[in-house]
């Protein structure tokens, strides 16, 4: 017992001050693209190999679809630059498409009625539908003492009956389609849907595999898209806090 107390003192208080204080990201972290870098010359130099996931559209001025982008650094050689900005989530699918002129649209807060219901307590049922355990792992990280998601009133629950929303990871495999829909049905209305990671948004690296359904968009109404492969915990938290109108 004494040892446990001593260890507790040595480990110290480790919950990060974010969002009160800014968060330092690793230097090589690839976040929101530098819009100016998506210019015509980049499009030309990058046109030959192309983006294998169809994230970079070389037609016209060149645009990057954050919903398809794996932030894999493959196109950095072609001239696409990424900033350190981790705020990537969006409420509308089309807002994930970045062009040199596009106006940045971040997550819009929930409606007044939903904020009244979920603003102080929001519970999710997570379903991995073909997720590779990277998204899942970094969602779990949010519940550790470093991030302490609970301090914002957000939690992941075991039962869909206790949940206010469905949290989806993975490209939605054919073999998980039914279980995913059953879980959605089991959540009482009103409910929200979060597509977390490139797979859940559009199929990620498995886009167009005959065994996957290319994400959730085709059959569930998505309220929050969180890009990344996997999304950094900071990206997830930023999206959630904006959705609940806790930062903005």
């Amino acid at each position: 017992m004494l040892r446990a107390i001593l260890a507790r003192i040595k480990q110290g208080h480790r919950t990060m001050p974010y969002p009160a204080a800014p968060l330092k990201m690793p230097e090589r972290f690839r976040g929101y693209p530098v819009q100016a870098s998506l210019c015509k010359s980049t499009a030309l130099s990058f046109a030959a190999p192309g983006c294998p996931y169809g994230a970079f559209d070389t037609a016209g001025e060149g645009s990057l679809d954050l919903g398809k982008c794996l932030f894999c650094a493959g196109c950095q050689a072609g001239g696409v630059e990424f900033s350190n900005d981790f705020s990537l989530a969006a409420t509308r699918r089309e807002n994930l498409i970045v062009t040199p002129e596009s106006v940045r649209c971040r997550v819009e807060p929930l409606s007044k009625e939903l904020l009244k219901l979920f603003g102080r307590s929001l519970k999710f049922r997570e379903v991995s539908a073909g997720g590779c355990n990277a998204c899942e792992a970094d969602i779990n990280v949010l519940s550790t003492i470093g991030w302490d998601l609970g301090r914002f009133g957000i939690q992941f629950t075991a039962s869909p009956r206790h949940a206010d929303g469905l949290w989806i990871t993975g490209p939605v495999t054919k073999n998980m389609h039914q279980a995913l829909l059953a879980t959605y049905e089991a959540i009482p209305s009103p409910k929200i849907v979060v597509a977390c990671g490139a797979c859940a948004i559009n199929g990620g690296p498995f886009i167009d595999s005959p065994q996957v359904l290319n994400g959730t968009d085709a059959f569930l109404p998505v309220d929050l898209y969180i890009p990344g492969c996997p999304p950094h915990p900071a990206t997830i938290l930023d999206g959630l806090l904006r959705l609940l109108n806790k930062i903005g």
Binding site: A129, G130, C132, G170, T173, M176, S209
Partner: peptide, 28 residues
Amino acid sequence: YQHRGIESLLQGGPHPATLRQIEAIAGD
């Protein structure tokens, strides 16, 4: 339940997407 058809995707490769699919065989 998690079957994404990876071995079928790899067939005929190496494709530009192959390494990213390999990286996501098991994300951890």
